[in-house]
């Protein structure tokens, strides 16, 4: 397994102005994640987990500090540059699945490949859908699928372009325990097969325990690394 640093932050800050005054969401977060590592970011509600994930993926901009993905400084790029970088190196799995409602399961998996201009989008997507056991459901729309099935489609979509890093935001948050277990198994299996770096945000200690590293956030600060 390669040991190069894939995700790195330096002195990351995020403040927002709210009606109650300035609010600090993240305060000087430094972390580095090596290629192929699985990392859980844990913490209570409001500790800044999702804010950190948003910044790591370049979905939001920090008020201070740096983030780099695969050695590229995210915020030296403009928003379009970051989108391009996401398309090339990053995959996502969300708590609310975030499938496009007007696209079938197969088309949802094809979408990132199509956006990347790949001509083999359909074959690749069919392969990944088979891998997550949803071939029979390929032509179903999200609202015709159960929550677990929707999340499997989302996982297939995330892995289809072989991303370097995969960010998962409470991937089992909307699912019952046993379905959640199966989803997590699938996530880790695919991760192992593709050698992806996995960063997941959760408040589920059981899920966090399956990761190699666990970073705990408390009031916007990285508290400790639990091994």
């Amino acid at each position: 397994m390669r040991s190069e640093i894939v995700v790195n932050t330096q002195n990351l800050h995020k403040r927002v102005v709210s009606p109650e005054g300035e609010l600090t969401l993240l305060q000087g977060v430094n972390l580095s994640i090596a290629a192929g590592e699985t990392v859980a970011i844990v913490g209570a509600s409001g500790s800044g987990k999702s804010t950190l994930l948003g910044l790591l993926a370049g979905l939001d901009e920090p008020t201070g500090g740096q983030v780099s993905i695969g050695g590229q400084d995210l915020f030296a790029l403009d928003e379009d540059g970051r989108a391009r970088l996401r398309g090339e190196k990053v995959g996502f799995v969300f708590q609310a699945f975030q499938l496009l409602p007007n696209l079938t399961a197969l088309e949802n998996v094809m979408l990132p490949l199509e956006l990347a201009g790949r001509h083999d989008a359909q074959q690749v997507a069919e392969g990944v859908l088979q891998r997550v056991g949803l071939t029979a459901r390929a032509s179903h729309y999200p609202k015709q699928l159960s929550g677990g099935e929707q999340q499997r489609v989302a996982i297939a979509r995330a892995f289809a372009p072989h991303p370097q890093v995969l960010f998962a935001d409470e991937p089992t948050g909307n699912l019952d325990r046993s379905t959640g277990e199966r989803i997590i198994d699938l996530l880790f299996q695919l991760n192992a097969e593709q050698g992806t770096t996995l960063v997941l945000v959760t408040h589920d200690p059981h899920l966090a325990a399956r990761c190699q590293r666990q970073l705990e956030l408390d009031e916007g600060q990285l508290k400790a690394e639990l091994q």
């Binding site: 979905l59 379009d80 989108a83 996401r86 398309g87 990053v90 996502f92 496009l100 409602p101 990132p112």
Partner: peptide
């Protein structure tokens, strides 16, 4: 709106 946000997430540039 959601679809566009997701596509942005999946790497689509604004022009795309």
């Amino acid at each position: 709106l959601d679809s566009c946000a997701i596509m942005r997430c999946l790497g689509a540039e604004q022009a795309v």
